[in-house]
Design a protein around this nucleic acid. Structure first.
Length: 274
DNA sequence: ACGAGGTCCTGCGAGC
DNA sequence: TGCTCGCAGGACCTCG
């Protein structure tokens, strides 16, 4: 499930391989992933485009071309993959968008559950779209003060606010759970009731964990695959996510789980997060 | 303004 | 063994 570190990782890996490449042709298996563009328009307009850059904003991977920008929002099971040899039957089955490149490779948007979104936007429309997104957590201008001030305005559960992309981008269920554990905060606590010192700590933990994860090239989990289509190698050792019922790595208490925060599974430690 | 809940989609694991 | 069922979840939507 790509969150910020996973998208950052794939963008870094793809950029040097894609910049300067031309798209010879494109095909799309399902058009319900498209937002704001029809299949015929996308297929037609992708043809003959030259890729000028590959960047990230929030959890979106952006493939910039000489005309428009292909904005890929991988959702949970999506990934951009560059195939340099023919795909297997299984790989073809999940290949939603296939772009044949001028160097013989194929750029593929793979999405098993097809819950991702593809947008095809002019730079101007992209600007308008991204203006609705919150700040980048790793931007130096996103300070602990700004973070705490914004959090203190909401009565919603702090985990829900942390995952709200209008508040701050890039943090999903995994990193929200991990950062709240590291900061010792009860995920269900209303954001405006968390002590300011804890909010400052949370800011630091969000930054630390995201940077650590980027350095580790993302957290492999379930359907996550690298740009070569391989399973991710590494991994960042998760403290709570996916560890319900297992002992807390800090105090040994059995980790608890709840669905009461925004209908998302949340694993936490009763003792460490009070 | 904000919260609650539904929607999309398929694979997988639990339970019978 | 083989079936059904419910969960996983990011973002967006509607309803109250």
């Amino acid at each position: 499930m790509p969150e910020l570190p996973e998208v950052e990782t794939l963008v870094r890996q793809l950029r040097p391989q894609l910049v300067g490449r031309a798209i010879l042709s494109a095909r799309l298996s399902h058009d319900n992933l498209l937002s704001g563009v029809t299949k015929p328009t996308l297929i037609k307009q992708l043809k003959q485009r030259v890729i000028t850059d590959v960047t990230r904003r929030a959890k979106h991977a952006l493939v910039h071309t000489d005309t428009k920008i292909l904005a890929v929002q991988p959702g949970m099971t999506g990934a951009l993959i560059l195939y340099r040899k023919p795909m297997s039957t299984e790989e073809v089955k999940y290949a939603v968008l296939r772009c044949e490149l001028d160097d013989g490779a194929e750029l593929v948007y793979r999405d098993v559950r097809r819950i991702g979104t593809l947008r095809w936007l002019t730079p101007k429309d992209w600007q308008a779209y991204q203006d609705g997104l919150g700040p980048e957590p790793l931007d130096p201008e996103f300070t602990a003060e700004i973070f705490a001030n914004r959090l203190a305005k909401s009565r919603a559960a702090i985990k829900k606010v942390l995952m709200d992309q209008r508040f701050v981008v890039g943090v999903g269920n995994i990193y929200a759970a991990e950062a709240l554990f590291a900061a010792g905060i009860d995920p269900s606590k209303p954001a405006n009731e968390v002590e300011p010192s804890r909010l400052a700590r949370l800011h630091d933990e969000v930054v630390r964990i995201l940077e650590l994860s980027i350095a580790a090239e993302g957290t492999s989990f379930r359907d996550y695959v690298t740009t070569t289509g391989d399973k991710g190698g590494f991994q960042l050792e998760l403290m709570v996510y996916g560890r319900e019922g297992e002992p807390c790595r800090v105090c040994g208490t059995r980790l608890a789980s709840t669905h009461e925060i925004d209908a998302r599974s949340t694993v936490f430690c009763w003792r460490c997060q009070s």
